[in-house]
Design a binder for these strands. Sequence first.
DNA 1: CCTCGCTGCCAAATCGTTTTGCCGCGGGGT
DNA 2: ACCCCGCGGCAAAACGATTTGGCAGCGAGG
Lengths: 351, 351
Amino acid sequence: MTTSQARAGSGEATGTRGRRPGIKDVAGAAGVSVTTVSHVLNGKGRVDAATRARVAEAAERLGYRPNSNARGLRSGRTDTIAMLLPAGADAHDHHVLAVDYYLSLTMKTVEAAFERDQALLQLPPLRRLDDLRRFGIDGGIVLDPVPGDGRVAMFHRLGLPVVTVGRDITRPDDPWWVAADSAASTRTVLEHFAAGGARRVAMLSVDIEWSWFADAERTYVEWAAERGCEPILVLARPDRRDSSAASAAAALLDLRPDAVYVPPQWLATGLLRLARDRGVRVPDDLLVAVGVDSHLARTSEPALTAVDLDPARTAREAVDLLMHRIEGGPPGDPRVIPVTLHPRGSSLRPK
Amino acid sequence: MTTSQARAGSGEATGTRGRRPGIKDVAGAAGVSVTTVSHVLNGKGRVDAATRARVAEAAERLGYRPNSNARGLRSGRTDTIAMLLPAGADAHDHHVLAVDYYLSLTMKTVEAAFERDQALLQLPPLRRLDDLRRFGIDGGIVLDPVPGDGRVAMFHRLGLPVVTVGRDITRPDDPWWVAADSAASTRTVLEHFAAGGARRVAMLSVDIEWSWFADAERTYVEWAAERGCEPILVLARPDRRDSSAASAAAALLDLRPDAVYVPPQWLATGLLRLARDRGVRVPDDLLVAVGVDSHLARTSEPALTAVDLDPARTAREAVDLLMHRIEGGPPGDPRVIPVTLHPRGSSLRPK
DNA sequence: CCTCGCTGCCAAATCGTTTTGCCGCGGGGT
DNA sequence: ACCCCGCGGCAAAACGATTTGGCAGCGAGG
């Protein structure tokens, strides 16, 4: 029944006929035992320098790569970590539209994992515990946990190490997270508005329990209080995008702000359109900034001032933190990622 | 050194305190040998119906899931397939901006793989053959192969089954691909323009050797020839987006078309802006359609008529085709995915 | 009565690697 | 002389599943 075993065809380097070389082949070629080969390749045992060199050369010459299944079986590790996009990240079906961010984060996470010699598995939406149990992974990165989803809980139930990107607001004592600095970015935006002469600074956000939005709202309210202003805060419902976004934008404009910070970038399009329809000019009458940078923000008319969440750094830190947890390291502090503001036309008044 | 041997008898489904149950635990609980358990679970050997039911019940009760490493070690399969995004799909670094499409395709592929009991690995850009050899996979899906990248070649060198999404134009005889029907969608768009009264139908595309663009250009030229028109075709350079996109759009508008099909959606933004700056009204003076649907297209002003590439179906077919190849099936025909045109404001003249 | 074939089940080999335990060999200390 | 220890290395036992090659028991056919 050996039909599968696609005949590996023309071999590699020198004459590799047939199968992929195993540790035995390397041992044979170097004239030592498999134990010694394993020790050399993993830098573990006590091996003479000359022997070490000989084994390394043989392994290199044969193009030897350890069989990941065998290694994983023995060591109990798979050298594979998982990543779970937020349910609803699919722009064709849903409304969570930080698409650029998620795609970039995905690719950067893949690369960061690769550099740590880990493979990265993309997991589907998990419906039952068994869904997660099927995968041979050492741990996982859950993106943007929300109170409702049981994803983090599933990892815990299976005793699997997990870290989140975005703080899980239902687990205030959990230090295993990485997140962009929402409070700092909010203050940066608000100060940017103030420096631009804005007096009535508002926020248009969304009623989702993600730490990025929750922290932005809290920081905004604090900031307004510090300046003795009444906060002007409108939250859109998170469900159907079109209607709730439009009505939230209308409600906000009715309050006559002269600057708006919009953490959920996908609400900005409707806001801009409505402003134009009402004769409110951006940036002349209204400064606008959004909380997630994207191609859309850059090419919008006017270009949208946006917070750069640095997905590359976020990915690196997330993988780093997860590996730390997998290796049994102590909890430590959460990783807060510094962010950058990209001021663009939507918040820069022509002089 | 606690010799593990989990106490099979007291195995609880609820209290998953101890280690993961193995096939031995199931065998103990059902009062049979591991061989019989394996046979039942894989539907292979000859087992009495009553025994079969007993084993299945025990496995279910214990929440048993086979260890993927052990299974893979023995069977030579990993039940894991890989997916390779095109180099440059990262919008934060590069210019290939069908971001919605790729994210959607990714998630749909994950789900399709899951339904086939496969895990999906996301692979980083491969620099050397060893990069690919490191991963324990049964096969891979390469997105949008271009003549330069060696990705498909690497799979072939390792004897790994591979399929592509998008035809590899350097391998005309390779039937192992899935692609949206570029020719049909091009004709649909062109006829849509013609039905809208357009006389000078042009194309603005890009000089990349992707089948989606190449086929669109060819089809456009054919269509123009059939109608006895001179084709009005401008290709942007694929390198730096800003300058080349702007100059291509300018060159196109200089030719005074009254309709433009833009297969690479990311060129449309600049075109729309330039048209407005020149006083060319869309759709009154110029009909526009793009070749990849996206959130940007839907929320643009005016909304852009776009071709829906059906990433969900593409993903399903790609996984299906790959599994077929992995299982040693005969080549068969490529899978051409039918597409849908979404007419929107940019190509619908107000009556 | 012997043989044959079939059913239902099991013991053991196997996959490729890591890890444990041990062994022979010098050399230095007592 | 003897003991002990560190070095360099190997054989063999895991790891958890699948697959092979049986082995009883039983009924039917010669």
